[in-house]
Amino acid sequence: MLLLEKNAMTEEIELLVKKHGNSRSALLPILQDIQRKHKYIPDFAQQEIARLLDIHPVEIYSVISFYAFLNTHPKGRNIVRLCQTITCDLAGKENVAKAIERELGIKFGETTKDNRITLEYVNCLGMCDQGPALLVNERVYPKVSPEKAIQILNEIK
């Protein structure tokens, strides 16, 4: 990371600490804000948060790695998550998955070359009555057919 970027990151985290407080209980909101903006939590950010919250960097890494929606490595601009839990599975998740993989030319767990989309599976989204469900960033799409899924993907930038 360049020095300039580091300074910007420090400033950003200082602001977040001001917003959420410097207690450990502020950790998740801070991480969530960084994740939302950068799509991942860089090494340097983790250490800066550790410094400002007076905890150890490994504790930050430990927390990030615990939660499925936080990550330490860059991902695509959009994260597309397909529910893999039973009712979505029975409602035809497999066909949707295949269609998406074919269309984007990547497998689940991978990111498109243009960095536009990262594909992931996710556990139950709470849309079991309307499966298969797709979560694009924080927006949820119910009753996704293969065709509809591709349409959704084509609309995201």
């Binding site: 839990t85 039973i86 556990n123 139950c124 709470g126 849309m127 079991c128 009555d129």
Partner: peptide, 11 residues
């Protein structure tokens, strides 16, 4: 934190 598969009443 409604996470139990098949539960969506809280939603």
């Amino acid at each position: 934190d409604e996470g139990e598969p098949g539960t969506f009443k809280d939603r």
